[in-house]
Design a binder for these strands. Structure first.
Lengths: 256, 256
DNA sequence: TGATTATTTTTGGTAAACCAATTAATTGGT
DNA sequence: ACCAATTAATTGGTTTACCAAAAATAATCA
């Protein structure tokens, strides 16, 4: 156990230490690959040197090379053909450069950015959901809503039930990309929301009302009303979040 | 080389073959982990069995286990502490279940979903960009715009220069999450756009005008005008895309 | 008996080895 | 000189072995 005294100083020290070695091997590799491309040694469409070669050239194990390639593949910058090789996407160097630069620093721990992105995404999502929802979607959303109400009325924080409600709405958009994006944000949202104690008894009561409004709008397929209801729902969370975050932004214990 | 004759039949045959073995090892592992959690053998907050144990239990190499964990970590569902273990996020089983189900089938190759998501994202982005752009942003956007005009006026397809323009706008939002999301979509967008030949000489000319309108709106920080300009810009692409896609959706050669 | 230090075990991090498939090269025949 | 078939080398896919750090356990001393 760490001493309770002087844990402030200890914290900043720890942060410095982790900050120094924060450059993970894979990010370094990605950076070097970027350099290869930007410098012209590797042109779009070219085949990458074999993993073994890269491994040796960068002085690192092949596992890291594979991990880096995997990450870049997710972003569509590389394409790997089994038993043949890995190829650079046919994008211009400018595009590749821009994207790689930001892959390295892609982290969702910017609280405001997270909430803001969620806000815009969900506003669009609820409109699409209202437009396209099937009866099955409606059933699913309703069920999630009732779960939330049950949990919230017993006093517990129903953050996760709330999120399930929103996930079900996202599913009703019939747009897998938008749905996936919301899905990516959800765990971080939950973490931040519970961390900043957005949830109180009075809040839960009003949220129930808001959910019902959203549901009703989706049911009647009223896109405008759905957007309005979602906006007021999220606005409130946003405001509380900002206040709570300002008060508690020191406490960032690294637990799951 | 494959025979030119009967390549239609050959194609469908190949598609069947790949469709059968499409269940990648990591997706299978993710599915099994999900099962462990849903069945209650693994509760939120618990520590996962050691990688070696999972490796043995699932009858697969440790690399795949690590790959699967990496993927779930990206979605915030697992947290791995070096030399200690990997832990399940403290989310409710319901949330985890919902998210994992969709991770497996997360693919950006749904053409309409891609364009639609981009449409909504960029509309929000351009508003934020107009609100928050710095002079440096403006300079950067302008430079990208001029690159596009240069390329487009020489007759070549300037899809990528176009994308750089949009990336620069995204950067000006000062929202790293929204920016990252757009970045993730860009390579797939380019692929689809060039595949469906959205770009023509007349199109390039009108696009130049649209870009200038967008730029002017961002410069004068007029959010409404920016949104309007972006909407008309994207609307046109969307329409052409849909038409082009309907005509060419058979030709899906798997090249980078 | 209780705290503290050694020691052993277990962990994820890392590198290397093995495999089947593909590609390039070489060889042999025409 | 050219083409076919066979062999050799190279590829990513997959598994295994090794490492230092952490945790858990055992042993030691006050």
């Amino acid at each position: 156990m760490v001493d309770q005294i002087e844990n402030e100083g200890m914290k900043s020290l720890i942060e410095n230490i982790t900050a120094i070695q924060v450059e993970s091997p894979v990010d370094k590799i990605i950076g070097q690959l970027k350099q290869l491309i930007v410098s012209g040694q590797l042109k779009p469409g070219d085949r990458l040197p074999a993993e073994r070669v890269l491994s040796e050239r960068f002085g690192v194990g092949r596992s890291y090379i594979r991990e880096a390639i995997l990450k870049l593949e997710f972003y569509g910058l590389l394409r790997t053909n089994p038993q043949s090789g890995t190829y650079v996407a046919g994008l211009s160097i400018n595009v590749i450069d821009n994207i790689i630069s930001d892959i390295i620093k892609f982290n969702k721990d910017d609280f405001n950015a997270l909430i803001e992105a969620r806000y815009h995404l969900e506003l669009n999502a609820v409109k699409l959901a209202a437009e396209r929802r099937t009866d099955e979607d409606l059933e699913s959303i309703k069920s999630a809503m009732e779960d939330y109400e049950k949990k919230a009325s017993t006093g517990g924080d129903a953050v996760e039930e709330d999120m399930v409600f929103h996930i079900k709405v996202a599913k009703a958009t019939k747009n897998s990309v938008i749905e996936s994006m919301i899905l990516i944000l959800v765990p971080d949202l939950i973490k931040n929301i519970v961390q900043n104690k957005i949830c109180g008894d009075n809040r839960a009561k009003t949220a129930i009302e808001e959910h019902r409004k959203i549901y009703a709008a989706i049911e009647s397929q009223d896109m405008a009303k759905a957007e309005e209801a979602m906006a007021s729902h999220l606005d409130e969370i946003w405001q509380i979040s900002k206040a709570g975050f300002a008060a508690q932004n020191i406490i960032n214990e690294a637990e799951v």
